[in-house]
């Protein structure tokens, strides 16, 4: 575990070297957090498909899918078994409830 003071010094030095974190990156991460939260919130109502989640979260369908597969990879969401043209996803037990 990093020493808090040493870490703070490193990050400060980094800001001096590279300038502040670009606003564009901050905005992108804020949009990501908002989209992910909307997806996880929508899933609290039960399993949904990518287009359903896109509609619930107000996202383009391809973006919703991309966020979805990211959350899936990092263990927040899992696939629901079953057939159909559009697979459904659900919250992983114990996640984001």
């Amino acid at each position: 575990m990093a020493d808090a003071k040493k870490l703070a010094e490193q990050l400060k030095k980094l800001n001096e070297l590279r300038g502040p974190v670009p606003q564009e990156l901050r905005d992108r991460v804020a949009a990501q957090n908002k989209a992910q939260k909307a997806i996880l919130d929508a899933l609290k109502e039960g399993p949904k498909t990518a287009p359903e989640l896109a509609a619930a979260a107000g996202l383009p369908e391809d973006r919703a899918l991309w966020y979805l597969v990211g959350l899936r990879k990092y263990g927040k969401i899992s696939d629901v078994a079953g057939r159909g043209d559009y697979p459904k996803y659900e919250l992983k037990a114990g996640e984001a409830k």
Binding site: M1, A2, N15, L17, L25
Partner: peptide
């Protein structure tokens, strides 16, 4: 990838071996 890093320090706090070297 430093160009995508918001410098939150979470990785450094989580690393059990203190190996993150931002510089």
């Amino acid at each position: 990838h430093p160009e995508h890093c918001i410098r939150c320090g979470a990785c450094a706090r989580a690393c059990p071996k203190d190996c993150i070297e931002f510089l």
